[in-house]
């Protein structure tokens, strides 16, 4: 099982390596690095097979965070950056991965990563991150067909949830569970804007609502918001959720209720973490691009 240092739901530090693989025996070592706004991940593939990954918190400097993530994934494997033949950078800080051979958008990388994790049946991907939310439709090869994102507004993102959690004094990892400890589902918070929703939430408390009921009401509002984005694309199963909020059942189950489709859950014993979908997709792109280069130079 991957080693996990539980720091905070958004950026749990995580390292995993497949000890059964001797990377020295492989011809193509490639890496994908996803520098997100709150956490950064690096994935290393050996001949296209998942070899190692590391997830870490993004610091104030993107190139440093990219390096930190990659070093974490290489740590203990006696591997150095020269051993990696092709690196693809993705995520919000993708242009800031100085040692990357190429930058690819997180949309394309997420689709490809999810396709690897779930298989060709995955058609709709929802990624709910700390500062954005995106919905991607892809084909059975993981190629993007349709996408929509929102990275302007805090409503519907992890940050928006955090603002409400802070205002209510509830640790963010308790929200999902507590939002179901209610007698009956309350109506969703009516304000979309996080700033106004926060005042509304404190107003509801003053009006005598329990904290759990307010949480339920906010989770429902967030689920509605995200669902409206999903429904713009028309969902087709399999439906897969990645990103920090994937761990918040309070939102996930309410989304499933609204769109009427259950999200695919990875088997309990998996070594995969939905958090690494972007970096994994980037590493797969790196592998394909390297093969293309090798083929081109072999022909030359």
């Amino acid at each position: 099982m991957p080693e996990e240092t539980k720091e905070f739901w958004r950026w749990s530090e995580k390292v995993w390596r497949d000890e059964s693989i001797d990377w020295r025996g492989s011809r193509a070592i490639t890496a994908g690095i996803d520098v997100g706004s709150v956490s950064s991940q690096a994935v290393i593939l050996a001949d296209g097979r998942l070899y190692a990954y590391h997830s870490t918190r993004t610091g104030s400097n993107s190139p440093d965070s990219a390096r930190k993530a990659l070093n974490g994934a290489m740590a203990g494997a006696d591997m150095s950056q020269e051993d990696i033949r092709y690196v693809v950078g993705t995520g919000y800080g993708r242009v800031n991965v100085p040692f990357a051979n190429r930058a690819i958008t997180e949309i394309a990388c997420h689709a490809r990563g999810a396709n690897y994790m779930v298989g060709p049946s995955v058609k709709t991907i929802l990624d709910m991150g700390g500062q954005d939310c995106k919905v991607i439709r892809c084909d059975e090869k993981g190629k993007v067909q349709n996408f929509i994102m929102n990275d302007k507004c805090a409503a519907g993102t992890g940050r928006g949830m955090e603002v409400i959690a802070d205002a209510l004094g509830v640790p963010i990892e308790d929200i999902g569970r507590r939002s179901f400890e209610i007698d009956e589902e309350p109506p969703p918070v009516s304000n979309v804007c996080t700033v106004f929703a926060k005042s509304e939430a404190t107003g509801l408390l003053k009006a005598g609502w329990s904290v759990n009921r307010v949480l339920a009401s906010y989770c429902a509002a967030m689920a509605e918001r995200v669902s409206s984005l999903i429904e713009r694309m028309s969902v087709e199963p399999d439906f897969f959720i990645t990103g920090g909020i994937a761990k918040n059942e309070g939102v996930v189950r309410r989304i499933e209720r609204i769109i009427g489709i259950e999200a695919v859950r990875l088997p309990a014993d998996t070594v995969l973490d939905p958090q690494i979908a972007g970096a994994l997709g980037a590493a797969l792109f790196a592998h394909a691009l390297l093969k293309k280069e090798q083929k081109a130079s072999a022909q030359a």
Binding site: A154, G160, T194, V195
Partner: peptide, 9 residues
């Protein structure tokens, strides 16, 4: 110039 267009960000 400010990047963020949202009060929270």
């Amino acid at each position: 110039p400010m990047n963020a267009q949202c009060t929270v960000f």
